[in-house]
Design a protein around this nucleic acid. Sequence first.
DNA 1: GTCGTCCTGTGGTCATAACCAATCTTCGCG
DNA 2: CGCGAAGATTGGTTATGACCACAGGACGAC
Lengths: 257, 257
Amino acid sequence: MLLDRSSPVPLHYQLRFYLQQQIEGGALKPGDAIPTERELVSRFGVSRITVRQAISDLTSEGFLYRQHGRGTYVRSQKIEQELSTLTGFAEEMAARGLAPGAKLISAELVESDGKIASALQIQTGDQVFEILRVRLANGEPMALEVTYYPVQVGERLLKEDLEGGLWPLLEDKFGIEIDWADETIGCAVPSESTARHLGIKKGTPVLVVERTTYTPDGRPMEFCRGYYRADRYSYRLRLKRKGRRASSVSLPSALTG
Amino acid sequence: MLLDRSSPVPLHYQLRFYLQQQIEGGALKPGDAIPTERELVSRFGVSRITVRQAISDLTSEGFLYRQHGRGTYVRSQKIEQELSTLTGFAEEMAARGLAPGAKLISAELVESDGKIASALQIQTGDQVFEILRVRLANGEPMALEVTYYPVQVGERLLKEDLEGGLWPLLEDKFGIEIDWADETIGCAVPSESTARHLGIKKGTPVLVVERTTYTPDGRPMEFCRGYYRADRYSYRLRLKRKGRRASSVSLPSALTG
DNA sequence: GTCGTCCTGTGGTCATAACCAATCTTCGCG
DNA sequence: CGCGAAGATTGGTTATGACCACAGGACGAC
């Protein structure tokens, strides 16, 4: 097993990919130590900096963890990798093994209210494109989603099929880079029409997820509010503890002044 | 402005801290380019690898983003840094500008039921240490938290003050490294006693947050269930879209076989 | 004016080399 | 047997130096 130096793919990336395969293929089990840095250096004939970059990437993504003076280990739980990432409804359902779908209720231009305008950073009253859909999992109603787009994007969306996931369209066809999002999760008793769309009795509480999605330069791309059936859906996420080194280390005074 | 080479704090960390201050202090505004790597090299008299490590850390934490051939830029939104991280109740309230507190209801050894046992990876019926607390923000009830610990940890906690945050105790005093957690967020109508502790009318839905927290080696450290007043609290998080680079690069066949 | 080409500046990759810091093992002293 | 000292092993930090890949501007040919 050697790396391909004629390939345009960087060595550290090839090595990282190799290690990832060892982990996912089961050759390296959770809790196992991976070979030491110097071992990998000699086995693959690369420099230590290359090895460290590969390991560092896998560490920051949660595949591995390091212990100074001991070694580098595979994290427990195969799923451990999946620190919570930004996904659309369709992706998320697919990840849970459910068949995603959507039933279009309406798609039209409306005037933005204050909340939508502030999320999309436009003026209250400016027109936005509103899409109202019931999201399905294995054919059953899972959520009611109301999504708002700036008009330019909305006009392009009108020509597309809106009953599948929209993000593949936005990313692959429109070339819009989705980078990050702010989410707020609360719960509430739904309105009568919302309850009807979800097929639940009125008075049953639902999860309310509001999300504003941004492109890398910080411009908002969409605002979405989803009402999820709490009996069928709970929001899951995995969080990593941040290093608190900053506060526990006394820095040289030259830096603090 | 120079770095302190006699300090035990690594140079890349000092530099990282300096840049972070420039950003938070407003000297570097969102969208601004930071000095080039080579500029920082000569200004601080360190090697490029040191500069790159500092920038790399800030990049992976969302303070900066890089563009090959152009430069490195400060992300828009001051808050942008705060990709969702694992925090305890006290830390979270403090971050929101509220004074955290806790009122201890009970702390005792109980038998674990199936759910708790499976979360803590012990046998159903094994004893666990249960702490029941009403969490306060500015003196007002915000949540009812029920937390379970393995007995060894619980016995040590019994001797401590349980009306503050527990994580500082666990991390700093006990030396337990809190690494990551799985969370599940749902909503439900609370029991009568829960509603009473929270000071809400029965029938008012609450957010239910269940969390299992783990140490780096994957062993569960605590299981916690919180009932949050939905009128005062909504769960907020910031998510980053994962790069989908892996699938778009063709790797050398030697690695795929 | 328009379109390439070339140059320059930027981040990206990689090698070699040295020493530091945390951890574990080994072994000898008491 | 117990305990501390010394050495080996592992990841952490840093320097120097070279070349590659991408973006943008300058400049000349057309």
